[in-house]
Nucleic acid binder design. Structure first.
Lengths: 194, 194
DNA sequence: AAATTGACTTGACATTTGTCAAGACTGTAC
DNA sequence: GTACAGTCTTGACAAATGTCAAGTCAATTT
């Protein structure tokens, strides 16, 4: 069950983990099962754990005054969950993280993560790479948001992450794109005739 | 002129730079003046240098098929310029970086930056922090883009970066927010009566 | 000083997107 | 098997935003 995590660190870092290092990782993460609709983080709470998704899927979202949900991020196997701001600074989060499917998460606190980074070069390198890639991906999404129409944003998502389209309900995809479910339904309808 | 850069590394890292380290930094960066409207990076070129803004201001933007510009990022004194994707992977960029004012930049190639990171703990720590903060800031902007109206996005920007509002022309602020200059003009007009 | 350019505003109108309400359909719970 | 909740679709209409064109103003150039 930790294998996917070891593989992640090794691939991202380009290094190989020693047996000792693997043991250290296992000691610092704790594995936990989540049922669909269960929360890893709720608005107002501090993000105590970052979670590596060994299996399953989740979403991070906010809820506005009108009760509308806005999905900031999806996560599937091999991705990380957590509100970076709340996690690194231990401040209350504005977001919720909820499982979309039954999931298996590997959890770690900020302090334990810092220990691993200090002790294991592969973890340090992988983390660094992760932050950089996250930033690059975010820039792309910002660029889409300010420069494309709803339909273009949908097409781009379908192309970049086709798995999302099949795996997540349409209303969540709409929320992720920042449009209403009705608009997305109409976009998809139009697409058929093109 | 390098003082602002030294201060940046020290503040971000919480460490103090030794004299040797300062010298090493000076050797690896090169200082260059840019006139207003001059480009640091043009679409299609590879982002050879990252630039630390010692003085001045700039914008990073794309141009779509209709000739419309979309500003992904602003930069002012103490901020960095560069397309992270193009810079770290040395691939052609989709963006342009242009000075909004006469500016003084401290430039460094990717390879030289890696050398500094390896040699100077304060630079390594500051860079790590920078990536994390950039990601957090990006997440906030994504959240605004998908959940707020044009007016709310403007208000948020005015609150978070009041300096931008005074310093940059309205049409650029509009482009940054992903709205037309006319819409921003009307938003500002309405705001007066509230 | 006259001409030119760029930034901003304003009005009229078009287009996109959101909202509300209703209905079809599916899978799940009881 | 029936009821129920969730998801998606569709239509009618409202609201937000974009587009085009014209005009003002200030700064810059000639």
């Amino acid at each position: 069950m930790f294998d996917i995590l070891f593989k992640y660190f090794e691939q991202k870092s380009g290094l190989t983990l020693l047996q000792d290092e693997k043991s250290l990782i296992e000691e610092n993460f704790k594995s936990k099962r989540f049922r669909k609709k269960q929360y890893l983080l709720q608005e107002g709470d501090t993000c105590k754990y970052a979670g590596f998704i060994a299996a399953g899927a989740a979403r991070m979202f906010s809820v506005d005054e009108k009760g509308h949900e806005h999905i900031v991020r999806f996560g599937i196997e091999g991705w990380w969950l957590g509100d970076p701001e709340s996690y690194t600074q231990q401040t209350p989060s504005k977001f919720n993280i909820e499982m979309i499917e039954d999931s298996e998460l590997l959890l770690i606190t900020w302090d334990h993560f810092q220990e691993l980074i200090a002790a294991i070069p592969a973890v340090a390198a992988a983390t660094k790479d992760m932050d950089k890639q996250s930033f690059i991906a975010s820039q792309k999404r910002i660029h889409s948001a300010i420069s494309l129409t709803a339909e273009e944003r949908y097409d781009e998502l379908a192309k970049a992450y086709p798995a999302f389209i099949q795996r997540f309900p349409q209303n969540m995809i709409a929320s992720y794109l920042g449009i209403s479910p009705e608009t997305l339904s109409r976009i998809r309808k139009n697409a058929l005739s093109n």
